[in-house]
């Protein structure tokens, strides 16, 4: 094993010099997503199939946080080269292409979600393609994605977040970082009655309990 992988040659990105590391183990190693112990797969098989709220954990994805300068045209171009789409520069917007999606988090911060096995590749390509001052951080183990949908999904979310979810205020594609119950979440609308939540690992058991409780009156269906 090498002691240290500096993924890009020193001379090319003297300004970054950050460590990139493939953090994904081989398939023989069991990976436990944040909601592994909730055993959602069994619930999907044995639980109710009818209800106003549906939940699926989109687990073990690659979560990359990019911080860079939105006024740096070279950096914006580099993002397009790596991800095949432009960074969403308008506040609270998101873009999605194939299995890659980008969420505006802050004027200089974006959350990029890619398939778990692609994370290292994307990171490496960023280091190859992008110059100047930026940071790219792999947070894949620290959060998970919940897909929430159904006729009552908005009713359930309204119990959980102070954000106005009316379609006039929260159209498909909008993304917010906000309070969710007594934790936080990144909420993105992916359809009229479909939302994506990015939640932190350490809060995921609490939020799973919360969502079950808040969905009780509508019925909760777990999908695999």
């Amino acid at each position: 094993m090498s002691d240290l992988t500096v993924a890009v040659p020193e001379e090319k990105v003297a300004s970054t010099k950050a460590v990139v590391m493939n953090q994904v183990a081989g398939p023989e190693v069991r990976a436990e997503s944040p909601l592994y112990h909730a055993d959602l797969d069994s619930l999907a098989k044995q639980g109710p199939r009818k209800g106003g709220v549906r939940l699926r954990e989109n687990k073990l994805l690659g979560h990359l946080t990019l911080r860079c300068n939105p006024n740096n045209a070279d950096q914006l171009a580099a993002v397009e080269r790596v991800l095949g789409m432009a960074l969403p520069l308008q506040p609270l917007t998101s873009v999605e292409k194939g299995d890659v999606s980008i969420r505006w988090m802050s004027p200089d911060e974006w959350l990029i979600i890619v398939p778990g096995l692609k994370a290292f590749d994307v990171e490496t390509r960023f280091r190859d393609e992008m110059d100047g001052h930026y940071s790219l951080v792999n947070g894949s183990g620290g959060s998970t994605v919940l897909e929430l949908s159904g006729d009552n999904v908005v009713d359930m979310l309204k119990k959980s977040t102070p954000i106005d979810l009316h379609p006039s205020e929260f159209p498909v594609g909008k993304v917010v970082s906000t309070v969710f119950a007594k934790s936080t979440a990144v909420i993105r609308r992916t359809g009229e009655k479909q939302f994506e939540l990015v939640i932190r690992r350490s809060f995921s058991d609490y939020l799973w309990l919360w969502i079950q409780d808040a969905s009780r009156e509508f019925g909760l269906v777990v999908d695999a």
Binding site: Q23, A25, G26, V29, S140, G141, R201
Partner: peptide, 28 residues
């Protein structure tokens, strides 16, 4: 079998290793 960063730092005064792995592999 899991990529890790190991820090040889000590809060006990003993020879000590802080093994950091992506949390999905922590239990493993």
């Amino acid at each position: 079998g899991v990529p890790a960063r190991v820090f040889r730092i000590s809060f006990t005064g003993e020879c000590s290793y802080e093994i950091n792995v992506q949390a999905n592999y922590g239990m493993h």
